[in-house]
Design a protein around this nucleic acid. Sequence first.
DNA 1: TTGAAAGCGCTACCAT
DNA 2: ATGGTAGCGCTTTCAA
Lengths: 350, 350
Amino acid sequence: MKLLAKNATGRGTGPARVTAWQVARRAKVSQSAVSRAFAGGAGVSSETRDRILAVATELGYQPNALARGLITQRSGIAGVVISDFGNPFLSAAVERLSKRLGRIGLQPLLIAVDTEDDVRAALSTLEQYRVDGCFVISPHMPQKLARRYHSVGTTVLMFNPQMTGLDASFVSVDNVAAGRAVADFLLDEGHVRLGYVHGPRGAGTDRDRYAGFVSRLEERSAARPAVGWGEYSYHGGARAMKALAAQSPRPTAVFCASDIMAMGAMDVARNALDLAVPEDLSIVGFDDAPPASWPSYDLTTIRQPMDAMIEAGIEILLDAGPDRTNKPTQRILDSELVLRSSTLTPSARS
Amino acid sequence: MKLLAKNATGRGTGPARVTAWQVARRAKVSQSAVSRAFAGGAGVSSETRDRILAVATELGYQPNALARGLITQRSGIAGVVISDFGNPFLSAAVERLSKRLGRIGLQPLLIAVDTEDDVRAALSTLEQYRVDGCFVISPHMPQKLARRYHSVGTTVLMFNPQMTGLDASFVSVDNVAAGRAVADFLLDEGHVRLGYVHGPRGAGTDRDRYAGFVSRLEERSAARPAVGWGEYSYHGGARAMKALAAQSPRPTAVFCASDIMAMGAMDVARNALDLAVPEDLSIVGFDDAPPASWPSYDLTTIRQPMDAMIEAGIEILLDAGPDRTNKPTQRILDSELVLRSSTLTPSARS
DNA sequence: TTGAAAGCGCTACCAT
DNA sequence: ATGGTAGCGCTTTCAA
């Protein structure tokens, strides 16, 4: 009687879902046995386990991850908050991260955001799904939010946020050091009039890159760079380049805070401003996104060690597991200047 | 007594989660009332509802979406299976789709795949999470799988699959017609030796585009095109272009089955083969991905109406809801040839 | 309008 | 090794 009543309700969508109960009955075991068989097989003899699995495939049984998550307090879901798929570095990061998460049994719940409010809403949604952790790849993550979510129990791991004084977990490259390296490189190349293309106002990455760039210029007594604003987008970079080129004297080298902006800048320089790169104008990007190495751009850029960053991020997320210390973890990795033909190579000079 | 016992177990990760019970107790109502208050407020007086919501925010209560999904049989999750983020058209599609889903209360669970086996595994995972529907944006979706999943109750909606004889739901452009349009255009331009760059072997989109292209060439008694294989990737397109250029006589116009391949082809033509585009070589792409309109490419291409396709896809998914008919729905939209400067414009001739 | 009670499908802890 | 049982946190009848 009771067995028949189980899942006999006609409710639900479409063809009734197979449950562990039905598998159990068919295999003449208890429902607990089915659960154990699917939980790695500990506590079941291999014969019964095989029988159970056979029946399960026969019936097309798939364990309900929602029910499992409810009881185990682990959803198996990781949140990924991302802004700007148009940036090839970020979309590549999402792909790599997604695959990496899958390999450790975490499924990424993806939320695309634009504004700070979007991030807020996204984190709320992710909290409702009881995500086991959460990556935020967006310049819009407000500091307070980060701290709050950290204390509420969901580990929020930021990808390249503003580092200075941030009391939350993140993984980043040393943007300040990278900015300084670019300054040194361009000055060593003999450039005097420099330009800088900013990302969106308030983006921590941009702020740090700029700070490093300018501080090194000052240390070496170089003039402050002319600046443009490019929103971390192709068209923004193009617009900023036009503005910079209108200055006089025009900069002979421009450092863009991201590759996608550098690509826009380079295209507009060549096609609209009739400037040869690198002869008339050197361009340096940031990220080493896949298109940076395409022959038409072949962009000198700061390489962010994407895989290492993802690895570090995953590590932080996992370490922050069940018995978490509630102490934010931060990892700052080294970046690397990759020389290509959008700048004069040092060997070509002298 | 019983109330105190509720959620008093110290288990779980981090700070104990706030449940509806705790909100209920604090607001001096039943737990059902809390549930109703969060379900739109039907069945609760506005006073009690306000009190409940106040207590909820005070306690930081967030309803558990897993539990809700378990009881309602609607997870609120939509699966998105995607291959190849390197393709700017596809990554843009994921972004748009993700935002569109969010607006109707569906959260996208993203799975990045490479092979057909990956797709199989992905669908299995998505089934465990009891997704309310699922988008597959991959050339690797096998027909049988599609049919099986459709009959099991999860609506699987394919984005641009192989259309011919497919007994499953999908949304697509008419790839055959598009291929024919490109053939007409290039022949009208006066080209005689044509080339075609394939996507991955077995991709339905590629097959249909090629079939349309060739059939129209035949109808107009033109020679069969020389072909290369480009895997729907930038570097693949570049390799294929090199191979095509080695033929003699060399094609004067090449149709690439995706924009990203066309970009690779164009770059290699200009930078390695020293061919001017469009003077020496015309190039036509497919998708109208964002970079296609960048000045350095300015690619003549077939525009896929992405937003309309997503809209149609969502519609199919929603229509296939609770009382689903189990009948696959298919929507084929029109595409459009966008003329840019990677081909000689008709007006420029004659 | 409200509260009590019955599960959704699973895991985990008991007994045996 | 196995089966019974108690929930995970919610929605949804059903009475009051």
